[in-house]
Amino acid sequence: MSPSERLAQVLTEGRFIAIRELGEESAAELHTHAKERYLALEESIPRFRSSMNRKLFELGPPALAIYQALHHDLGVDRGPALRMTEDMLLAFHRKQRSRSPLLGAAMDIVLRLKPARSLLLKSMLTREPGGFRFDRASDAGAPLDFDVRACPLVTFARRQGAPEVVPMVCRLDDLQAQEPRGIELQRAGALGMGAERCDFRYVTAKK
Results as ranks from 00 to 15, higher is better:
Leu121Val: 03
Ile17Gly: 10
Leu41Ala: 04
Arg49Ala: 09
Ala195Asn: 02
Ser26Lys: 15
Ala150Leu: 08
Leu30Asn: 01
Asp199Ile: 02
Met168Pro: 11
Ala81Asp: 06
Gly23Leu: 08
Glu29Thr: 00
Ala195Thr: 00
Leu153Ala: 14
Arg15Phe: 14
Asp145Leu: 02
Cys198Arg: 03
Phe57Tyr: 07
Leu153Gly: 14
Ala205Phe: 02
Asp174Gln: 10
Ile183Thr: 09
Pro163Glu: 02
Gly194Tyr: 04
Met124Asn: 09
Thr32Gln: 05
Gln178Tyr: 11
Phe92Cys: 10
Glu36Gln: 14
Arg15Asn: 12
Arg159Val: 01
Tyr67Ile: 00
Ala195Asp: 01
Glu43Tyr: 02
Glu128Asp: 05
Phe200Lys: 05
Gly75Arg: 08
Glu43Gln: 11
His72Ile: 00
Arg181Tyr: 15
Ala142Ser: 14
Tyr67Ala: 04
Asp199Tyr: 11
Arg20Ile: 00
Arg159Phe: 08
Val165Asp: 07
Pro80Trp: 12
Met124Arg: 11
Leu102Met: 02
Met88Asp: 06
Gly60Asn: 05
Leu144Gln: 07
Pro163Arg: 03
Glu25Leu: 12
Gln178Cys: 14
Ile183Leu: 14
Ala18Leu: 05
Phe134Glu: 05
Ser100Gln: 11
Lys95Met: 10
Ile17Ala: 13
Ile183Gly: 15
Ala40Thr: 08
Val203Tyr: 10
Arg197Thr: 01
Pro62Phe: 05
Ser44Phe: 03
His93Val: 07
Pro180Leu: 11
Leu22Asn: 09
Arg37His: 14
Leu30Trp: 03
Asp87Lys: 10
Ala91Ser: 15
Gly131Gln: 07
Met84His: 01
Leu153Asn: 14
Ala142Trp: 03
Val76Asn: 13
Ala28Lys: 14
Leu191Gly: 04
Thr155Gln: 14
Leu119Cys: 06
Arg149Ile: 02
Leu59Pro: 06
His31Lys: 11
Arg112Ala: 03
Ile17Cys: 11
